[in-house]
């Protein structure tokens, strides 16, 4: 068993959107170590979300290789990718993506129901300080609360990796800090390998490692000797 959770080599991705062809990734090499918290920085259109989608098994690369441990993700079929996501990955999205017709607790239970060894949904919510809000529907929660429900949902199945796409993108600073604290504590306490996409450079200070993506390639890599606490961040 290798220490690398993810290993990607020469990843490329080309989209066809109607009549337009978009080259989203132009050869990305990347490794992610177990328990690592990595922040992926980059401007809009740099390919951050595409990379995260490929690592999370939501999409397949047009070229190159990507491995999750010993599992080959490039060229895997839909069935294999679904199983991979189901067993190993937790997602946190910019706009929370909660199911509006389900309560906070039910949104978490939606995922624990199909997981093998999940934590009880209420525990997951309690960990994010949301036990009192468990019976509220998404529309009755603030943006920060919704994102914390989304994190509870993502971690409740005890995933090996947590992939977060702009988790604070729709939040104000104070609320954003709460969300980042939650992600940080999950990473520290549960040892979940975490990849956070953001275009906010300050968030990078809380990571073990920072990758800078530009024009479909990793332009820069930086390791933080000292990780800042979420509460110290600002934007």
């Amino acid at each position: 068993m290798t220490d690398h959770v993810f290993r990607a080599e020469k990843l490329t991705k080309v989209y066809r959107m109607g009549e337009v062809e978009v080259q989203a990734l132009r050869g990305v090499d990347l490794t992610l170590a177990r328990g690592e918290l990595v922040v992926l920085l980059g401007p809009s259109g740099s390919g951050k979300s595409t990379l995260l989608n490929i690592l999370g098994g939501l999409d397949v690369p047009s070229g190159g290789e990507v491995w999750y441990g010993d599992h080959q993700l490039h060229g895997a079929d839909e069935k294999a990718l679904t199983r991979f996501r189901r067993e190993h990955v937790g997602f946190v999205f910019q706009f929370y993506n909660l199911i509006p017709s389900l309560t906070a607790l039910e949104n978490v239970a939606l995922v624990t129901e199909i997981a093998e060894d999940p934590m009880p949904p209420r525990d997951a919510l309690a960990r994010l300080g949301l036990d009192a809000r468990r019976d509220h529907f998404p529309a009755q929660l603030s943006g920060g609360e919704q994102q914390r429900v989304a994190i509870a949902r993502a971690i409740a199945k005890r995933p090996d990796v947590l992939l977060c796409d702009e988790p604070t993108g729709a939040l104000d600073a104070a609320t954003g800090v709460l969300v980042l604290e939650a992600l940080d504590s999950v990473n520290r306490e549960l040892g979940t390998t975490t990849l956070i996409i953001t275009h906010n450079a300050d968030i990078a200070r809380m990571a073990h490692r920072v990758l800078q993506l530009a024009d479909g390639r990793i332009a820069r890599e930086q390791r933080n000797d000292v990780r800042a606490k979420a509460s110290e961040l600002s934007w």
Binding site: L58, E78, K79, T82, R85, R86, V89, G90, F91, L110
Partner: peptide, 14 residues
Amino acid sequence: REQIGTLKAFGYRP
């Protein structure tokens, strides 16, 4: 659409 995407992201099968 997004809900379907989310369900699939969390491993719900087609």
